[in-house]
Design a protein around this nucleic acid. Structure first.
Lengths: 149, 149
DNA sequence: TCCTTTATTGATAGTGATTCTCATTATTAT
DNA sequence: ATAATAATGAGAATCACTATCAATAAAGGA
């Protein structure tokens, strides 16, 4: 239960720990998958009924800036959020038809090695300070393979 | 000047080659970088003043379906379009502050090899028919490294 | 070249996600 | 407690993109 850690982090940065923030962090922490703001909104309402959608967006944005949550964009017009769990980085498999996103982490060792190499090279060559990356594969999932064209 | 090739492709699929389509393809073909619909809109207006924004979106969508243009989403709420040049696939370096996108194609051989391997594995394991991928690195570009925090 | 069919277009209204505004409320330090 | 001010909720506003629809213009044939 890392709660106290966050609290410390919040205070340091001049932020306050509030009911809505607790509730949102709780949902993002427990629910898995790449949640949309709406997913989170409806879920948080169960434990904090009065919450407004604006607070969801504001809070998620704060969490992203604090590094507690990762924000992804797979196309389709909605941002997706996920609790940051540094010990299991993963990549994505996105269905171009239904939008389903599957995580995978096989090959990660090989990938990680290569990616480190690339990062160093890009850092040097383009003067970028790289801190993250995203590798997504696009295609059709099993059920969409039939139904489409 | 591959114009005639497109024309053939259009006819086959029951599409017509029109002024707006020519103008848009021309811009996407000549201008480089990852253009937003608006970038393209303003540019096409120079050679085809009466064009409407809806036609830009419709046409880009058609081109994407035909494989003439690639559509990307780096977050930030705008889709980006780029002429498909099959001989030089590349990956991206995105500045999280100013949104600038830099292409790179070093390491592509190693990357390609690994990515093929991963695709085959994912295909088998998750029953996905994968047809493309996107690898983006995120960080701060040279000029943004100073100005931020 | 003119005609017919129908894909395409431009204008504009509509949609859906996200952000902004602002008066009210809730936290934190005192 | 109390003051100072960060955070919230409601709703308006914005922004990218899509749908609607009457008018226009390709393409093929006469």
């Amino acid at each position: 239960m890392p709660g106290p850690r966050w609290r410390g982090n919040f205070k340091e940065r001049g932020h306050r720990m509030t009911g809505p923030r607790d509730a949102i962090l709780d949902v993002v922490n427990k629910k898995q998958g790449h949640l949309t703001a709406d997913d989170i909104f409806f879920e948080v309402r169960k434990s904090y009924p009065g919450i407004g959608i604006a607070t969801i967006y504001r809070t998620l944005d704060l969490f992203v800036r604090m590094g507690l949550v990762n924000k992804f964009d797979f196309g389709g017009g909605k941002s997706r959020y996920e609790f940051t769990s540094k010990e299991k980085h993963h990549h994505h498999l996105v269905c171009k038809n239904c939008g389903r996103v599957v995580d995978y982490d096989s090959f990660l060792d090989e990938e990680t090695e290569l990616i480190k190499k690339i990062e160093a090279e890009l850092n040097r060559k383009h003067d970028f300070k790289i801190d993250s990356h995203q590798l997504d594969f696009y295609g059709l999932c099993k059920s969409c393979q039939r139904e489409v064209k």
